[in-house]
């Protein structure tokens, strides 16, 4: 095993809430694995993704990479790609600069993802969601991520783009030894992509979350 992403006894509750969204969750993912998270909506899949990628700090437990705690500063080796690419690109930056923030992607990444060179000079709102999502994937790869957390990344795309993006990610992951944790509501996509499916136990908090409008 070349690397391992491990979550140990994670507990997380949103501020102001007494009910944990994630309660004592443990998970280990190898670098060669593609793990699908399966759970009903509102049971904390997105929250888990944000915990793994370091966007949220757990109340208890820890996220380990190769047995070591994630660095607080510097480039995070676990990169999250989400469902809304338009929210994670600064609207006042050209796409070239958006990419530069992570580093310089390889030329093959541009070709593999179908990013046209002329898009580099555009702003985020001048590109469609599908085009932006390609940049988000390229950015995560340019950051030399060792693990990708993909949260419904192709939900908003048509099937052709979905197939194109996932095929590229799978090839790249296999070539560079990048582990993948992903969420998808589509059983067909899960069975295509996943090497393992992890079912999150719907905690007692799930129903409570569902009642609140922000769930």
């Amino acid at each position: 095993m070349t690397g391992c992403l491990e979550a140990r006894d994670l507990v997380f509750a949103y501020p102001g809430s007494n009910v944990p969204v994630i309660d004592g969750l443990s998970l280990a993912v190898g670098a060669e694995e593609r793990v699908a998270l399966h759970a009903p909506s509102g049971s904390g899949k997105t929250t888990l993704g944000r915990l793994l990628a370091g966007y949220l700090a757990p109340l208890a437990g820890e996220v380990l990479l190769d047995g070591a705690v994630l660095p607080r500063r510097g480039m995070c080796p676990i990169q999250l790609i989400g469902q809304h690419p338009e929210l994670v690109c600064d609207p006042r930056m050209r796409m070239r600069d958006v990419l530069k923030e992570a580093g310089t992607p390889d030329e093959e990444v541009f070709d593999g993802l179908g990013i046209r060179r002329e898009w580099l000079a555009r702003y985020a709102h001048e590109l469609s969601g599908g085009e932006l999502q390609r940049f988000c994937i390229a950015r995560a790869l340019a950051a030399r991520a060792r693990f990708l957390i993909a949260d419904e990344i192709t939900t908003m795309l048509d099937a052709v783009s979905q197939a194109q993006l996932w095929r590229f990610i799978l090839d790249k992951a296999a070539a560079d030894g990048i582990g993948i944790v992903f969420v998808s509501h589509s059983p067909a996509l899960v069975s295509r992509v996943a090497t393992r499916v992890v079912a999150l136990r719907a905690s007692a908090s799930a129903s409570a979350l569902f009642l609140s409008p922000r769930a």
Binding site: A53, Y55, C76, D90, E101, A143
Partner: peptide, 23 residues
């Protein structure tokens, strides 16, 4: 979200302020 992401890409607070907040 793009500021949170910039932090996860290893950008420091001053860098983020100059690149994202000032504009």
């Amino acid at each position: 979200p793009y500021v949170a992401l910039a932090r996860r890409l290893g950008r420091g607070p001053l860098d983020v302020a100059a690149r994202h907040m000032l504009p």
